[in-house]
Design a protein around this nucleic acid. Structure first.
Length: 292
DNA sequence: TGCAGTGTTGCTTC
DNA sequence: CGAAGCAACACTGC
């Protein structure tokens, strides 16, 4: 999935492109995406509402709608929202989504679009999501803020203070990599950026969180901010089929220093990068720069 | 061919 | 309470 920089990029772009628009229709061939009610009710409640603004909470995209309603979208692993135009047809009992390219709708380009929101200016917002983990919730502000994925969220990685950061990390005993990725500790850091941050800070991903010195925590904090800021400037990373809301790739991927670089020489000391397991996730690190 | 691995996180189990 | 493992799903690469 998109991590903080990718979600941030998409939310900002959506805010610019769809604020002020009303939602006129909704289509989906994967009703399981909707978590707040069934498709019929969701559609009935959604149609007619106007998008006031779009922002994010952690990795969730938040559409602030008229009548104090909120549409929350979590893109999970492979989801990405896009603004454009598509045509949906049923062919031998299967839905086919065609993209508009230079005024012509072409088949087989968007086989992963499972949700489309139609707008009152002929535009559309689509959720492309290969693995179909993406989730949609529609509700009042209060209902949405009460969802566990919002309520349990720690401070945002871009806003957290050094003090709070240290305190929250020192409380945990699990691997620092897992703590950085734990949304209830700090919101926004995922697998890619956790590896990048720890490499820059020279902290081994499997060190237990409560063993990290204050001096090291200062570096982890500093690189968290620096790396996320830089990634936002570059419009995120494109791993797999991630694209921003206009369908463009993010370019931070070209700047990655350890993520998925197992066996390549460390950019600092040329020692081959290794891969280890932290929980069910893999961690990439330099065994020389990042001592256990 | 089969299976481990892939951007997330809530839930279950211990 | 915390930590660990699993599930949701489709696809890739060894």
């Amino acid at each position: 999935m998109p991590e903080l920089p990718e979600v941030h990029t998409i939310a900002k772009e959506l805010n610019k492109k769809v604020s002020g628009r009303a939602i006129t229709d909704y289509w989906s061939d994967w009703p399981k995406s909707i978590k707040s009610s069934n498709t019929t009710k969701f559609k009935k409640e959604l149609i007619g509402l106007r998008i006031k603004s779009v922002d994010r909470i952690g990795k969730n995209i938040v559409f602030h709608l008229s009548r104090e309603k909120v549409l929350l979208i979590h893109q999970k692993m492979t989801g990405h929202l896009m603004v454009g135009r598509w045509s949906v047809k049923k062919r031998s009992n299967k839905w086919v989504v065609e993209s508009e390219i230079r005024g012509v709708f072409q088949e087989r380009v968007n086989q992963y679009i499972h949700n489309i929101f139609y707008l009152d200016n002929e535009g559309m917002i689509a959720l492309s999501d290969m693995r179909k983990f993406g989730k949609l919730y529609l509700g009042s502000k209060k209902e949405v803020l009460g969802l566990p994925e919002i309520k349990n969220l720690g401070p945002d990685a871009l806003n957290i203070t050094q003090e709070e950061f240290n305190k929250r990390i020192a409380k945990k005993k699990k691997a620092i990599k897992l703590t950085l990725m734990d949304p209830s500790v700090v919101a926004g850091i995922g697998n890619i950026y956790a590896d990048e941050i720890l490499w820059s800070a020279r902290v081994h991903p499997l060190r237990s969180s409560n063993s990290i010195s204050n001096k090291e925590l200062r570096k982890v904090f500093k690189y968290t901010k620096e790396i996320l800021d830089k990634a936002i400037k570059l419009r995120g990373s494109s791993v797999g089929d991630y694209r921003d809301a206009s369908g463009e790739k993010g370019s931070y991927s070209d700047h990655m220093l350890v993520y998925r670089l197992t066996g390549s020489p460390c950019k600092r000391c040329a020692t081959p990068i290794e891969r280890a397991k932290a929980g069910q996730r893999s961690a990439h690190f330099c065994p020389r720069c990042q001592e256990l």
